[in-house]
Design a protein around this nucleic acid. Structure first.
Lengths: 119, 119
DNA sequence: ATGCGTTATATTTTGTCAAACATAACGCTA
DNA sequence: TAGCGTTATGTTTGACAAAATATAACGCAT
């Protein structure tokens, strides 16, 4: 069993997971982080800012999430005391939790596979 | 426990795995397919053609693979009876096998997780 | 009324990656 | 020697995604 990789190179097993519907993505690691930050800040724009993402992109992602959900995952309000805002609904929180746990199991899978990989 | 996704939408859990080194990708599903086809046809150009990939891209991928390997994974020859050709070395075959098996375990992981996912 | 911060939405610009295109070299064959 | 199919390599073009930019609307606060 030879070692394949150049000995001066470190390798890393990496990967991505996502949930897709027939013609759109539904959930992924980026949307998870976005939802989490919206929950934390109560604002799409603040969440976007913190992720270094344009507000438009964040808003589009929220729109995609809501469009594919039975009930809204993020409820928004325009105008008002703080200028408006957004909050993650209970269903959104459930999605956050499920996907976060899935991500954790995936990371465990990656670690286990990386350990047995011989390159 | 509510169902989150719109009932008219089917979801699919999907993902990607790859091996990366500090400043390049080393192995992934595309490279696996390319190596397999090179082995099958003994030619980079034929493999590229079959994948609907430009020859240049295929050649670049092979160059990247070889550049990161302790010993070449693909040996090439210019000119000669068939105009030249390429063959996958034993080390390349080992990489094919290891990564293919990893892919299979990953698919099993995805199937198992999809089954327990409630959306 | 005016201003503020936010959501909502369209349009334009930019960046990135792959495709397309273009040559050259190689070594057998005829 | 001319031709063929392949590897080898650089340059240009194109496509797509994300960012940037630009407005508008909203509803509270002052």
């Amino acid at each position: 069993m030879k070692n394949l990789l150049r000995p001066d190179l470190a390798f890393r097993l990496n990967g991505r997971l996502w949930v897709e519907t027939p013609d759109d993505r539904f959930m992924g690691i980026g949307r998870l982080e976005l939802l989490t930050l919206i929950q934390e800040h109560g604002s799409i724009s603040k969440a976007a800012q913190q992720m270094g993402m344009s507000y438009k992109r964040a808003w589009d992602l929220v729109a995609s999430l809501n469009a594919q959900s039975a009930t809204p995952l993020v409820q928004t309000q325009t105008g008002g005391k703080r200028g408006g805002g957004a909050e993650v609904t209970p269903e959104g929180q459930q999605l956050i939790q499920e996907f976060r746990e899935l991500q954790e199991r995936f990371q465990e899978f990656l670690a286990a596979e990386a350990a047995r990989l011989l390159l």
